[in-house]
């Protein structure tokens, strides 16, 4: 319970900071909604010309997008710290968290909030509600699967950003890997086969953030649900291990810094 209260305190504080700069907050949210909407409009236009590609229709793409946008939005909106970790490691900004009594990675992850994520999440939920015509059961599954996908997004971000412990500066690499994950996640799985598919269930786990959740939303399957669960636990373990091992190499720094 302490963890929940602690996370809540951070969300509240971050929200207050965001609202102190109201214009920036709302334009970030709105900007993201518009950005996402453009993609869906593109796909809508596409499918009005080619109603189905290889059995894949507009509703499928809507579901993919709504899950990805909601999950990613929740991830950066609640756990934005995971996505800025590399630069903070390189600049030696972990000191503050290391002298306080909470798991360092948890603390870091909740310490930042990317408000544009709230736009993504808002968009994802709205699109799902209005365009995917869900049953109440679908809605419950959607929430659950989005949370799981968000967890995997966060774990992935922690793992790739933690490479900064070894490389010193890994912002570019980690940003690209995360961008790659989003890109692959928002395309239909059917496009990929063979070695690429192996990559999509390991190094760039689009399979776990999107393909499996989407297929479960279409059709519940206990086997795939189990695979997803194992994948989630696995990705959390990889993230925590990478961070913990890397932390021994942490070099701190003497940069004069303010806590933003």
């Amino acid at each position: 319970m302490n963890v929940v209260r602690f996370t809540g305190a951070y969300v509240w504080a971050n929200l207050r900071i965001a609202l102190a700069y109201r214009a920036a907050f709302f334009s970030a949210v709105l900007g993201m909604v518009i950005n996402d909407a453009i993609w869906v409009v593109f796909w809508w236009l596409f499918f009005t010309r080619f109603p189905s590609v290889d059995g894949y229709g507009f509703r499928d793409i809507v579901i993919v997008w709504s899950i990805c946008a909601t999950a990613f939005g929740l991830a950066v909106g609640l756990a934005g710290g995971a996505f800025t970790l590399a630069s903070r490691i390189a600049r030696g900004e972990l000191d503050f968290y290391l002298v306080l009594p909470k798991p360092v990675i948890l603390h870091l992850v909740v310490s930042r909030m990317d408000t544009s994520g709230w736009g993504d999440a808002l968009f994802g939920v709205a699109v799902f509600a209005f365009l995917a015509s869900p049953t109440p059961m679908d809605a419950v599954a959607f929430v659950g699967l989005s949370l799981i996908a968000a967890t995997i997004f966060v774990s992935y971000a922690i793992a790739v950003n933690s490479l900064a412990f070894w490389t010193g500066r890994a912002e570019t690499l980690s940003d690209q890997l995360i961008f790659g994950l989003i890109t692959f996640a928002t395309y239909p799985e059917k496009l990929f086969t063979g070695a690429v598919k192996v990559v999509l269930y390991t190094v760039v786990p689009a399979g776990f953030v999107a393909y499996i959740p989407v297929s479960l939303l279409h059709e519940w399957d206990r086997g795939w649900a189990l695979v997803l669960l194992v994948g989630t636990i696995g990705s959390i373990s990889v993230a925590v291990t990478t961070f913990t091992v890397g932390l021994r190499r942490y070099q701190s720094g003497n940069l004069t810094a303010m806590r933003a």
Partner: peptide
């Protein structure tokens, strides 16, 4: 223990210090 660095602030820059106290209360349980 407690640590104070003259060159690194441990307060939340954009918030009033009172809010830092509230957060630290939660952080230290």
């Amino acid at each position: 223990i407690a640590t104070v660095f003259g060159q690194k602030s441990q307060l939340w820059y954009h918030l009033p210090a009172r809010d830092s106290f509230t957060l630290l209360t939660r952080i230290h349980d």
